[in-house]
Amino acid sequence: MSIVIRKSTIDILCAAKWIARRDCRALSSVPEKVDIGEEVKEKVPGHKPRAHNPLLEYRHVYPEFLPDPNPKWRNSLREKMERADMLKRRSQIDIPEFYVGSIVAVTISDPHAQGKTNRFVGICIDRKGSGLRAEFILRNVIDHQGVEVRYELYDPTIQLIQVLRLEKRLDDKLYYLRDALPEYCTFPLDMDPEILPEGTPVPLNPVQVKLKPRPWLERWERQELKGVSNIEEHLKEKDRVRRELRKTPWEKYDLMKQYRKTIPAEDQSEIWNEVYNQLQQMRVSRKKMSRKRTFATPKTQLA
């Protein structure tokens, strides 16, 4: 639990400072994602960058190696066996780095398909689960019909996971694409992979989607979504009033809630120390095999 005290010439608001400090303390994927926008803004004035433990950066690349933080389900030995099995599977198949918002192609062996394999391309709208139960959902619109497929990350029938476009979106979960206009999640099945140059940070796609008129599957207006542009024009006065009533602005100050949702930094560094070497070896050997990444400009800003 390290508390970083920033030396700043410009006065930052007390609250903002506090949020930043707490985010540093929890050191897990959840708070970082929540406050990602603020952090980008803060870094701009030229502050000294934080001295991060490089091992802890793995929590974004391999989020499923962190166990479920619910103390009822934790057991160090089970987690260890699970990680060993995950590494065994990773030695057989390259599971690349991708995020919610990336466009991924998955080839899976299917006994009922023609040619016994099935390939699906789509945008990753959610990643969840930890350990061997990690899964992700791909969404695409095929023949004007929205299709979603849920894949298990460690399913041994998956032959290939290919990242066609590596990028992040403004939100953690993109379920609102179900209610968005279909062009925002329509991707050609024969899309070519866009290769980023070595060492570039994962680009953030700031596209804001347009929602279809109501009825919606969820009450999107209450979820403080950043990636939706036209939410206000579909709302009635009643919805705005209720949104105000349902707001929970105190939750971001609930330290215990944050703590319960995250794995402490000490536990994380223990986990990463255990798996770091093997993951690094696999990475290096795969890099040698694959061709080098070359730069390609993103074609469209839309989706």
């Binding site: 065994k88 599977r89 030695s91 057989q92 062996s109 040619g115 041994p156 029938t157 032959q159």
Partner: peptide, 13 residues
């Protein structure tokens, strides 16, 4: 059971 260090499952035509 399929071992995790065995190659990917494929189905034969």
């Amino acid at each position: 059971i399929h071992l995790f260090d065995e190659p990917t499952i494929t189905f034969e035509e």
